[in-house]
Design a protein around this nucleic acid. Structure first.
Length: 492
RNA sequence: CGGGAGGUAGUUCAGCCCGGUUAGAAUACCUGGUUUGGGACCAGGGGGUCGCUGGUUCGAAUCCAGUCCUCCCGACCA
């Protein structure tokens, strides 16, 4: 007997937790709302990070690092942004502990070490960064400023879930400054496309590109672009956001530049980010009741080789053969692991690597040696077939590519089947309750109506798709005229 | 932050209501042997501050209070 996971049908939330804990992605910690990312999960994050980092560099960005702490006076400078985050900020008020005279061996906060000004633990870094940019930007020649940072942030969430919402998480945040509005808007849009292609080409996760309604917009932004993904339980998940910040932060932090005519103006800004939440999205996009299913292009282990043998003699022969296979696969750029641990049997390993979502498993035994073949099993469909050792690396590369495409196609079909139009309020609610997914419905464009729909149905406007088809209609709730359908869903 | 559930061996859990030998099981782990094409079997063995703190009691895993962590539901979530 081994590790069992709860089925999706039985309890979707528990299934999600089981997958993460039992595949070794992450663990709970002694700190409320904070998790430990375990080596296997961190390896996955590193792969995602490396790909994204390369994409950022290719679009002209450079990395830097800004402080974890933000003085309260800076934090509150951009009022809307500060207000938006105020309720979930961790705040440092003291800088020293001392021995507790009443409890030997224990410590207490030293009341004499109170900070003159509190430090906010960054929930996002606009404040500290714009305060810094002020000193870096004088002329149009200093623009554009295209900086990204990989960092941790803290948001004191009331209810947390592994990867999807934790009090501390890892992310990247890009912060750019531009001379013109058009250029800043183009930057925000460009990064949206970068995120979308990462999600689709690497995570094999189809996304809808769109803009947020004013209610869902980032605090302090003029426009928020987003990619929205659909999970297997029919709920939507915001997978990345990119913001056009206008001149809001430039004004709040007094960041001005001289243009070619020597006229002073505030700079235009963007910010954009994706986080370890993407791992939660990845889990829910492809996995099944046997465990994780990882896209080959991001999997920490792409191929695992399991030997099947009777006795040391056979084992030695297989070891020898596998040595060559591993070498040829590695030479072909494949991340391969040979699990010759003799303490667990093949069946146990099969189940274990399925749990961990390894895309391809190769089993090799005495019978295979005689026939110059191996048994190749793919994680996505569970199909097994016999592959010749001749040309194995090429065949494996092709199979990995096929798996990547197959899981994308599967997710894409699911999504296509779960974008449903609704024209009446009854239909809208029935779809939400019975089918889930995105519901394309007319909305009169007001925040009040959006709020009311949310209250009544628990569904929010996920986005207004970019290049949305215009179509005159009536608001699903109020019947007021509407120019286009927007996507609603219940969301994470 | 509100409601509910939970925390006992690495893991899953029993024991708790009704306090009383040395706190159990399965699984995992260690040793030896037999095994190995889907989570092996036999024999032997090691492993526990019963989440933490305090209280009640001759005696607490068990009763009481506080506290920490987790899960589920809700509120909240740029």
């Amino acid at each position: 007997m081994g590790k069992e996971i709860t089925s999706r049908e039985q309890d979707y939330s528990q299934w999600y937790n089981d997958i993460i804990l039992k595949s070794g992605l992450a663990d709970y910690s002694a700190v409320r709302g904070c998790m430990v990312i375990k080596p296997y999960g961190y390896a996955l994050w590193e792969n995602m990070r490396d790909v994204l980092d390369k994409m950022f560099k290719e679009t002209g960005h450079v990395n830097a690092y800004f402080p974890l702490f933000v003085p309260k006076s800076l934090f509150e400078a951009e009022e809307k942004n500060a207000e938006g985050f105020a309720k979930e900020c961790a705040v440092v008020t003291h800088y020293r502990l001392k021995s507790d005279p009443e409890r030997p061996g224990k410590l207490m906060v030293d009341p004499e070490a109170k900070l003159e000004e509190e430090l906010v633990v960054r929930p996002t870094s606009e404040a500290i960064i714009w305060n810094t940019y002020k000193g870096w930007i004088q002329s149009y020649r200093d623009l554009p400023l295209l900086i990204n940072q990989w960092a941790n942030v803290v948001r004191w969430e009331m209810r947390t879930r592994l990867f999807l919402r934790t009090a501390e998480f890892l992310w990247q945040e890009g912060h750019t400054a531009h001379a013109t509005k058009d250029e800043a808007v183009a930057e925000a849009e460009q990064m949206l496309h970068v995120y979308a292609s990462f999600a689709e080409d690497w995570m094999a996760m189809p996304v809808v590109k769109g803009i947020k309604s004013p209610n869902e917009r980032f605090a302090g932004a003029e426009e928020t672009y987003c990619i929205e993904a659909l999970m297997q339980d029919g709920k939507a998940l915001q997978a990345g956001t990119s913001h056009f910040l206008g001149q809001n932060f430039a004004k709040a932090f007094d960041v001005k530049f001289s243009d070619k005519q020597n006229k002073l103006d505030y700079v235009w800004a963007t910010s954009w980010g994706v986080s370890t939440r993407l791992i939660g999205a990845l889990v829910m996009a492809h996995s099944d009741d046997d465990g994780l299913v990882l896209p080959p292009k991001l999997a920490p282990i792409q191929v695992v080789i399991v030997p099947i043998f009777k006795g040391e003699e056979q084992k030695a022969l297989i070891d020898e053969k596998v040595k060559g296979i591993v070498k040829s696969l590695k030479a072909a750029g494949i991340k391969v692991k040979y699990d010759d641990n003799e303490n667990s049997r093949p069946g146990w390993k099969f189940a274990e690597y399925e749990m961990k979502g390894v895309p391809v498993r190769i089993a090799i035994g005495a019978r295979d040696l005689e026939n110059n073949v191996v048994e190749v099993a793919r994680r996505d469909t569970k199909e097994k077939s016999s592959y010749s050792l001749d040309g194995l690396p090429e065949a494996v590369i092709a199979l990995l590519e096929e798996i990547q495409q197959n899981i994308y196609a599967k997710a894409n079909t699911y999504r296509a089947e779960h974008i449903t139009p609704a024209d009446t309020w009854e239909e809208f609610n029935e779809l939400l309750d019975k089918k889930g997914g995105f519901i394309a419905a007319h909305w009169d464009g007001t925040g009040d109506t959006e709020e009311k729909i949310k209250e009544l149905s628990k569904a929010t406007i996920r986005c207004i798709p970019i290049n949305n088809q215009l179509e005159a209609g009536k608001c699903i709730l109020t019947g007021n005229p509407s120019a286009q359908r927007v996507l609603f869903a219940r969301a994470y």
